[in-house]
Design a binder for these strands. Structure first.
Lengths: 255, 255
DNA sequence: CGCCTATTTGATCTGATTCAAACAATGTGG
DNA sequence: CCACATTGTTTGAATCAGATCAAATAGGCG
């Protein structure tokens, strides 16, 4: 069990984006012993039916949470970015009802459920924040459900990209109008419940409208206002408190 | 503030279906002062954007949680049955990112957020159970998302009805193979993200296959095994602990 | 009985899927 | 540094699941 200095920084930043942390709570989180692990793209981190005894936070890369149908079709039910703790529900529910997968090469920081138990016992407020974190996660799932059920593909895609941009901005991974987004269109189609071909065509619509560029694993938003309007994106459901630097929606469109 | 004797019984039963309650915790829940309220079909209970200061449990009837698109299309993101506490997230997140609606005439039991604060402080284990409850809710949302994204309409509908039957059975509202289910097909279509016409046609498929009957607001399951197979229904995601009486899947198919 | 609301049926349309092939990018080893 | 393999993106054509529109029945219920 090693502990790289500041490893938990991103996670703390993420938690602070949804609530207040007391200094001693931050201290305790920093002191949490973590074990880093690196995984290749499309490797399973946790499998459906597993009973994990550890949680992890994402340090680098993107992870997806997935369910697979009887005919082998995959649906992502969430995408987690650096700073997130994807399997807090594994902690609460004990048994996984979905798999967790590395969507890109990832570095994860593992820590024991027992350590979380200890933290939550010592700092009830921290427990509240973790609870809040899971509820927020559920709010995102509801929006995905809504978009899948009642929005056309282009709207859904636009909303998805706004959400990703916002989540990444919270942890400082957006630089001006651009951010690295190394997913394949196939993976995006699994998130949106569409076919890869249709994602490709919807994407071309967004490009044609001059809303964004996406090449070499980097997305550049050319018209945030337009993209958010098209996607009917209102970040309220992300329940972000405080300001976020390099927030795409803060910047104006180019002239 | 009145308190009808045993009003919270259903809620307690529901909570006990997902975890253990200590006698003093049960006692505290029973002593929770509640204010009953009755609402007509399709009335809003909580609106998107509200900052509620109360929670409620469902005593009778069905409530839905809904989001509405820019073009006025409605998507239900959850359906809650008696015993459920639909807006625990209003308690945790403070501001509602979706509306809560009476899908049938309902009786609700309201109680203050401050009372929950008090309970959670006095009984950390109860807090854990409520946390667990919200996470479980999220698990159901994920399954809805999966079914909407990757399953055909008939499968989705079959799964939905299995889920409803199971949730109702937990609180003793299933009698043998039958249970009251007073939703319209229109409302079901809002839950499944389909059109009412298509729900009607999918339903006819299920009837034609002899899987169920549905008339006068009552569903009778004729072939649980068949319905569950068609819907790829595995109740594991409901994380029910202990046995449930009048559980539809416990009973055999008729000869 | 008559009104209102829900269910059912029919016909047509369309957004999205599927299948298949071409094209572009990226990486790998010689 | 190039040839080749691999993986991802793009295009085209055919098909289909599910939506939409419209009208006909069937249930409640005052």
């Amino acid at each position: 069990m090693s502990r790289a200095l500041g490893s938990n920084g991103l996670m703390i930043r993420k938690i602070q984006s949804i609530g207040r942390l007391a200094p001693e709570e931050r201290r305790a989180l920093l002191d949490l012993p973590v074990k880093p692990r690196t995984l290749a793209r499309e490797r399973a981190i946790v499998r459906e039916g597993d009973r994990p005894e550890q949680c992890f936070s994402v340090l680098e890369g993107l992870v997806g949470r997935a369910k697979v149908s009887g005919t082998g079709k995959r649906q992502l039910v969430a995408i987690n970015v650096p700073g997130d703790i994807p399997d807090l529900e594994g902690y609460t529910l004990r048994i996984m009802d979905h798999a967790i997968i590395a969507l890109t090469p990832v570095t994860l920081l593992f820590f024991n459920h027992s350590a979380v138990d200890e933290l939550v016992r010592r700092f009830p407020n921290l427990g509240r924040l973790l609870w809040r974190e899971t509820v927020l996660d559920a709010a995102i799932t509801r929006v995905w459900l809504f978009n899948l059920g009642r929005q056309p593909a282009v709207t859904h895609l636009a909303h998805f990209l706004c959400e990703m941009a916002t989540k990444l901005a919270v942890v400082g991974l957006v630089d001006g109008q651009s951010f690295p987004f190394p997913l394949t269109q196939e993976q995006v189609s699994d998130a949106l419940g569409l076919s890869n071909v249709h994602v490709n065509r919807s994407l071309q619509t967004l490009r044609r409208e001059g809303l964004l560029e996406w090449k070499a694993g980097t997305i550049t938003i050319r018209d945030w206002r337009g993209l958010a309007t098209l996607g009917e994106f209102d970040p309220a459901y992300l329940h972000i408190v405080g300001e976020v630097d390099s927030f795409p929606m803060a910047s104006e469109d180019p002239p």
